[in-house]
């Protein structure tokens, strides 16, 4: 049985949904699933890891790992990879995953594919489907000449289910002494407590049709009711209405939520590339010829200033909020 190591990200004592998906994917594909978690509270995640199929839970319970530091995480991960020699390593295509694992790949002679949306396990080989050119096409990545095969998956790719629980045997490791060249001095929290765009299940994006920055409030009102994250088109980011971390598209974030609502976004090819993997797309625009309608599941041709408040109000009633 091939061994798959899953890097588990957690927040406020909970395994992130994206990591739960990875544990379940490995377990459903008959892998010997090993979970890895870092930080002083990592031990409290052990039973949740086991419930999602982990046979072993490898921990480095060190407060130095409570926040991400590229060198310390690399050192800790290297120890575990060396001791467990996994064929496959799965992690989220998250801020931490994307920073850490390419360096681990270079260090250990592994291959790495990021941003994957589907996996196929074929014996000792893993194949990963991923979008290229921000979703204008797809291709399957294959590995060769690798010590291990690392795939970073996007969030929200599979529905969560119940899998056969694993033994969840605890294995603790200590953090090796590291001569640090990188020091994290401060984390400045973002203004929003919402989920990151790339992880959100519902995204509501605004474009130039909103006319001015302050009208983004209409989107935030709807987002609060739906538990959604607010995104934006490049045009309004470049105009300085909102920050770049909200940009959806080829030079921003690629998103694939269950529901994407585009409000006053005309749908430039770069924007469409960044969101067309969304499962259901709603477009609200006063121009019936806007390209966004070519990608939309449902369209409302109308005045967003009239439609949005009604939509927010109706959802509030229906969802009882």
């Amino acid at each position: 049985m091939p061994t798959t190591l899953v890097f588990v990200e957690h927040q406020d004592g909970q395994i992130k949904r994206s990591s739960q998906e990875l544990l379940q994917i490995a377990t459903q594909n008959n892998q010997k699933t090993l979970a890895v978690a870092f930080g002083s509270h990592a031990k409290s995640l052990a039973s949740a890891c086991a419930q999602n199929g982990a046979q072993e839970v490898h921990l480095v319970c060190d407060s130095k790992l409570d926040h991400y530091n590229s060198e310390l995480y690399l050192a800790a991960m290297s120890v575990i990879v060396e001791k467990t020699s996994p064929q496959f390593i799965l992690a989220s295509s998250s801020s931490v995953g994307r920073d850490l694992f390419p360096r681990l790949a270079a260090k250990t002679g592994a291959g790495i594919v990021s941003d994957a949306i589907a996996l196929t396990f074929e014996g000792s080989n893993l194949k990963a489907k991923k979008p290229l050119y921000a979703g204008k096409c797809f291709a399957t990545a294959e590995f060769k000449n690798c010590s291990s095969q690392i795939v970073l998956m996007r969030a929200n790719q599979i529905p969560l289910t119940t899998v056969a629980a694993g033994a969840g045997q605890l294995v603790e490791h200590s953090l090796p002494a590291t001569d640090l060249k990188t020091i994290v001095q401060e984390i400045v929290k973002g203004s929003s407590k919402k989920m990151d765009l790339t992880e959100a299940n519902i995204v509501i994006s605004g474009g130039r049709g909103l006319k001015e920055a302050s009208n983004f409030k209409l989107l935030h009102d709807l987002a609060d009711v739906l538990g959604a994250t607010v995104g934006a088109s490049r045009a309004v980011v470049d105009a300085g209405w909102v920050s770049h971390d909200m940009q959806v598209g080829q030079t921003g974030k690629t998103v694939a939520p269950t529901l994407y609502i585009a409000v006053g976004v005309s749908g430039a090819i770069q924007h469409l590339a960044g969101m067309s993997g969304s499962k259901v797309i709603v477009a609200i625009n006063n121009d019936a010829n806007a390209p966004i309608f070519q990608k939309a599941t449902y369209g409302i041709v109308g005045d967003l200033f009239e439609v949005l408040p009604k939509l927010t109000e109706e959802f509030r009633k229906v969802l009882g909020k």
Partner: peptide
Amino acid sequence: IEGGAKEKI
């Protein structure tokens, strides 16, 4: 980093 947060290093 995620959610509009920044890390100073």
